[in-house]
Amino acid sequence: MAIERHLNDTVHVTNLEWFVNWSRKSSMWPLGFGLACCALEMIATFVSRYDLSRFGMEVARPSPRHADLMIVSGTASKKMLPAVLRIYEQMADPKWVIAMGACACSGGIYKNYAVVQGIDRYLPVDVYIPGCPPRPEALLDGILQLHAKVMKEQSIKNPRVPRIKAAGQ
């Protein structure tokens, strides 16, 4: 990096894609919404003890239009599903989804008529976090995995198109 040395290391040279990815992952704002018991662990992750702000994520947005990341924290009942999909649609691109807990991943213990058997039937899930509920450390790990994934995205050349899947696919 000769040019940097030439300018006394006052500039940093990189490619645009790395820079875009880095800025996306360094301030990924989660949507402040919870569906069931897992939400409590998510809240614990946000507050002082586990301190999500270390990863540039302390601003949980109540409005989906400001949010980049949807943490599906808990049981998605069939009655709630239309609202979840509506919220996802309202989020601006680029956006990511974490399925937190057994319920969001697969329906969990609720193999019954009222619960969606995995939110990935409808949303393009990026990271699955197992557990019932996952501990805050697990959620943090999942978030760091997502950050690593974002850094590998071809955000300029081949940007992904997040969209809701058709039922059951």
Partner: peptide
């Protein structure tokens, strides 16, 4: 577990 017909997801 319900049925696709009677208790659809959406």
């Amino acid at each position: 577990i319900g049925t696709e017909e009677d208790t659809p997801d959406l």
